[in-house]
Amino acid sequence: MRSTFGQYIPGASVLHRMDPRVKIVLTVLYVVAVFLTGSLIGYAALTAFVLTAIFLSRVGFGTVMRALKPLLFIIIFTTVINLFFNSTGNTVLSWWIIRITDAGIINALRISYRLTLLITGTALLTLTTNTVDLTDALERLLRPMKLIRFPVHELAMMMTIALRFIPTLMEETDRIMKAQKARGADFETGGALKRAKAMVPLLIPLFVSAFRIASDLALAMEARCYHGGEGRTRMKTLRLGRLDLWAGMAFCVVAAAVVCDQCGLFAFADNAVRGLIFPGGAL
């Protein structure tokens, strides 16, 4: 099964209908919160937030989880590193040169959970927002940068086009690959050199296609009088709605929990839970 990371799944859920600008801002704040928090209460609040969002998005729990697939290796890798190479804390298990400490376990769990929260949360943004809305929102959010002559519109347009043509080029790759396979091309076996050579019949037609598509697109844009961002109006103007207000408020609650927690307001609860997991632990 393919990973769903970065994919858009059409729908009409409340998450799909939210203003993409709000979604981007909330995602950024969410990422900051995930990095800020280090305690169980904070994680619980963020988990509740992301689970509610997944539920509301109606894309399905499994779909969101599959976004983790390409990054699973990184998660496992960092978890293992943290588990084995942590020398502080009480030793829980010791064998040969490996020494696993309770602090190591906590750290490993924390890192892997943090990454999981991070990926599911950001995947949700792309799963529920199509690329046009995404770059459109980005353009709006970055508009103040125009003051320092940063080409916001041009950048957003380039991003829209690039994202729009990823699937097209993937399809094209698939098509050409099949056509060459039908002529006996072999992309899968052999050493590195042989494989690199085998790519030639794929890459040349792909480049030719990419340039053809690009020049067609440029022509089509010019024929429709595209002349850059100056004085350009939009078909779809973004407007904040009640949904966005609700989402913002929900996040404020979560953020408040994280911040209070960071200031040590919930320290007693945190310690109580830790005490349950590691009686007599040094943390």
Partner: peptide
């Protein structure tokens, strides 16, 4: 794949060699 020849839609987009003869001989 050698016994079943397959000509895709718009097969001209699969050409890649330097000469027509070499492409056909692929």
């Amino acid at each position: 794949r050698h016994r079943v020849g397959m000509v895709f839609q718009y097969p001209e987009y699969q050409l890649f060699e330097e000469t027509v003869a070499r492409d056909i001989a692929f």
